[in-house]
Amino acid sequence: MKKAYMGVDIGSISTKGIIIDEDNKILASEYIWTEGDPIGAVKRLISILKGQFNEKKYKVVGVGTTGSARKLIGVILGANIVKNEITAHAIGTLSLYPDVHTIFEIGGQDSKIIIIDHGIVTDYAMNTLCAAGTGSFLSSQSKRLGLEVEEFGEMALKSKNPTNIAARCTVFAESDLVHKVQIGHKKEDIIAGLCKAVVNNYLNNVGKGKKISAPIVFQGGVSKNVGVIKAFEEATGEKIIVDPNSHLMGALGVAILSKKAPEVSFDFNIEDVTFETKGIECKGCANNCERICVYKDGKLIDAWGNKCDKGAIKVKAGV
């Protein structure tokens, strides 16, 4: 039996999973929508991965989780490593592009930039205050224009004269867009302008003050949009590399990291297990910490969210 490693990246918008062998070869992978239900999404994901995976030949001995629900899903899957998405993306990308200098990542709700020097992360930034320039902004605007977000990129490429759209903030961008549609700008020009706005917003906020140099790898859901890729190439004057699996880099990274952690024995059959979370407010003081308790088939398996020991919820050993 050969060893295999699973990585799961649970973002606010999409959930990504990957299984690799010892040589990082992809054995199974999937990309689905989170739909506000990380536990349900992961259950679906695991059963899809199971269908693609040869359980007779391989055994999953490492499970890593990353993304904003990494802690919760890490508990549910019994992960042997839980890693933040910055490190996971860097490790995943480096495994395919060892020379990479700059990673642009634009996801559904957040975006990051990672600067790498000789295989080591030297600088990074993440948007924290603002959702402008992320995937969900593009998809809401495509709906407004009566388009599927998937058609967006191709349409942008048709434009010869992109419309200028305010890039500072989605609120400004949106009203600017509406006005320009109404005074008669062409749809493809508006769309190309939006792609440019996203890129400018990204470079001015997340990329501000960072040393951007080639090779540049672009990933995250928005990297599938050729209009944004083109806008990035124009803005940086460099070629932008987009891997066919660019949406899986975080999952890949954390799968690779799980190789180094103590081995576990992963069981695919979690479909019938019920996982529940309950928020319990601590009444110990006026801080009212919201503690999250995770139950597996009705039994408490983990809890967090308390600021001090007074609010600690003890999980009975052996559960």
């Binding site: 890693k83 933040n84 910055i86 080591i120 992360v121 924290t128």
Partner: peptide, 18 residues
Amino acid sequence: DVGINTRIEAFYDMIMMR
């Protein structure tokens, strides 16, 4: 604390790898 901890964690990973 989620966003803050993510960035602290990544910072730790970065300086550790260096």
